[in-house]
């Protein structure tokens, strides 16, 4: 199969959808050259640096029958548009009794690794998960990216595409033919029987490397990639944990009230899954600090394959909670 980068897969999905549906248009500071070239300035708009304004403009156009794509570039830059995201986009369909739909795709890169310090290395998706009325996903492969973006563009709700900046140039197979991936469907990226690792984005790849390493010792790791954050595929996560009895959650964001906390709750609040747990749930996350610049400090903050391995060993060594 041919290969595309993560970023190319996103652009290909968008271009295909824009060809299919003339109601789709694109807004970002700096027009993306390949889209601008194909679709022209009417449909690919370079905005002033006004995220609050062009997010709101997107909402208005969506309510009037268009399907805007609002590209904030880095998630960092959408914080100036929080009113439009939280008070408007997320609530407007519900608040007005479902009269009209607001189909929108928001794009936002997340994550660290670039040594660009606190403001430009953020993974704040759980802040958005906390807002009812927004769907969102965070893919780990070019294949998932393309399929999820297409679904999101066709969805009649605001959907945020969180995109890992560490993965932008990473290649992977993407079929030629049209396909979509439903929102809310996790993907088991590796099957195993001793421990479940639920990981997101870049950490899916780190978890795969960790699993490969541990396989040499006969430890069998199952890796679940939720792909979609809202709606979350609870069934796949729970059934994996019921099988393995152990759970490690790997997330590039900090742990506090985070995605990892949500997954831990999803597993422990389900009686059938809880009953099968052989060890406490382990979270392998970033430290709960703003991300520092210096490489020594940045490395100290982010989880990686070694910390996932350490986390897995910890749950394998742990006693069953009831027996403790």
């Amino acid at each position: 199969m041919r290969e595309l980068t993560y970023n190319e897969a996103a652009l290909e999905a968008i271009a295909e959808e824009m060809r299919r549906d003339p109601k789709i248009f694109y807004m970002s500071t700096d027009a993306l050259p390949p889209l601008l070239k194909e679709f022209g300035e009417q449909r690919v708009k370079a905005t002033p640096i006004t995220e609050a304004a062009f997010t709101g403009i997107g909402i208005g156009a969506a309510g009037c029958g268009f399907r805007p794509i609002v590209d904030w570039r880095q998630v960092t830059f959408c914080f100036v548009a929080m009113d439009q995201i939280v008070n408007q986009a997320a609530k407007i369909h519900y608040m007005f009794g479902g009269q009209v739909t607001f189909p929108m795709l928001f794009r936002a890169s997340v994550g660290g690794g670039g040594l660009v310090a606190a403001q430009h290395s953020q993974s704040p998706y759980s802040m958005f998960m906390n807002v009812a009325g927004l769907k969102m996903f965070l893919p780990s492969t070019p294949y998932d990216m393309k399929g999820l973006i297409k679904t999101a563009i066709r969805d009649n709700n605001p959907v945020i595409s969180f995109e890992s900046s560490r993965l932008m140039g990473r290649r992977g197979p993407v079929p030629d033919e049209d396909y979509t991936i439903p929102l809310g469907q996790a993907d088991v990226k590796r099957e195993g029987s001793d421990v479940t690792v639920v990981a997101l984005a870049w950490l899916v790849h780190e978890a795969l490397a960790a699993a490969e390493e541990l396989a040499k010792e006969g430890i069998s790791v199952e890796i679940v990639d939720p792909r979609t954050l809202v709606p979350l595929d609870k069934d796949t996560i729970r059934s994996s944990v019921r099988k393995t009895g152990r759970l490690v959650i790997a997330d590039e964001a900090g742990p506090t009230a985070g995605f990892s906390a949500e997954v831990a709750a999803v597993v422990t609040e389900d009686a059938a899954t809880f009953a099968r747990l052989k060890a406490p749930v382990k979270r392998v996350c970033a430290l709960q600090v703003p991300i520092p610049y210096s490489p020594v400090l940045e490395n100290a903050v982010f989880p990686d394959r070694n910390r996932i391995i350490a986390g897995i060993r910890e749950v394998l060594d742990a006693k069953q909670p009831a027996a403790a």
Partner: peptide, 23 residues
């Protein structure tokens, strides 16, 4: 070492910081 090029500040001389967010 926490800030880098985009975040140098020296409040002692009245330089309230470089900033990575436009405006």
């Amino acid at each position: 070492g926490k800030g880098g090029s985009m975040h140098i500040a020296d409040f002692g001389i009245g330089m309230l910081g470089a900033n990575g967010i436009v405006a």
